[in-house]
């Protein structure tokens, strides 16, 4: 009996750790992607906006990965988890590691992610795990601003010139197959949904689709048909792009272990 309970606790802890890595890896990888624009965005205001969004996401990463390290109980800090894991151990959605491409593509990726992020955090605010609810409460206020902005820009560019419309439609068509993964539960998602820790991945689909449809309609963009959807990021199966992100992000800590300033 005691053994069964201990085993259950260990399973729950492992599921929680995977889930927290997923939250932190999404914000870390997307935050890193956005920071690649720093100094290169098409207008000063956009440069500042992306850097600020990246800052929020990296801040949230510290909270999620900090808690992941605590839950794991092996003394790993948020920095250890960010800088010293290899691609197979990352749990981020494939969407977040898509290359930036041109500016419209970056904005479309941001909108598709923000809409999911906002709804997911809304669900996490009533998590049965108070530390998760606390982070979600904090992060959702920031993410509301991310979504407000990315939605606005997708509408402005989609419903802009023929050129901007065509580019946004192409970005949408290319990125759409990476959205399905957001609504597919992995084993750890199911365990946590059952325990009231996190909403089930599937449960957000209807709200996300409604939000996306409303925005795309206003942007005069056409929602692509649901065909093959890529998956695997949440299980550590990534595209080749993640390796390049990690090579750049982790270089310093790998070459000079423990360096700080």
């Amino acid at each position: 009996m005691v053994q069964a309970t201990a085993m259950q606790a260990a399973v729950h802890r492992a599921a929680l750790f995977d889930f927290l890595l997923g939250m932190g890896d999404n914000t870390l990888i997307l935050g890193h992607r956005l920071s690649e624009w720093c100094g290169h965005a098409p207008a000063l205001e956009e440069d500042i906006a992306l850097a600020n969004t990246a800052l929020d996401l990296i801040g949230q990463t510290q909270l999620w990965l900090g808690l992941a390290g605590e839950v794991e109980g092996r003394g790993r800090s948020a920095d250890d988890l960010a800088y010293l894991r290899d691609a197979r151990d990352f749990r981020n959605l494939l969407l977040t590691e898509r290359p930036n491409g041109e500016y419209g593509r970056t904005l479309m990726r941001q909108f598709l992610f923000d809409a999911w992020h906002f709804l997911f955090l809304k669900g996490l605010r009533v998590s049965s795990e108070p530390r998760i609810a606390g982070i979600a409460e904090k992060a959702s206020k920031e993410v509301a601003y991310h979504l407000e902005r990315s939605r606005d820009l997708v509408i402005r560019l989609g419903d802009g010139t023929a050129e901007s419309h065509a580019r946004l439609q192409e970005a949408l068509d290319d990125l759409w197959p990476y959205t399905g993964e957001m609504f597919v539960s992995e084993a750890h998602d199911l365990a946590l949904a059952a325990a009231g820790v996190a909403p089930g991945a599937e449960s957000l689909k209807a709200d996300w689709e409604a939000l996306a449809a409303e925005t795309l309609r206003a942007a005069t963009l056409e929602k692509p048909e649901d065909r093959y959807m890529h998956g695997g990021g949440k299980r550590g199966l990534h595209t080749e792009h993640l390796g390049y992100v990690l090579a750049e992000m982790q270089f310093l800590q790998r070459a000079y272990p423990g360096a700080s300033w």
């Binding site: 809304k122 206020k141 509301a144 979504l147 407000e148 709200d207 409604a210 939000l211 409303e214």
Partner: peptide, 17 residues
């Protein structure tokens, strides 16, 4: 007038903010 309140309203009513 936090963005969050405006967005939640929009998601619930799916119109305006």
């Amino acid at each position: 007038s936090g963005a969050e309140g405006r967005l939640l309203k929009r998601i619930e009513g799916l119109s305006g903010g």
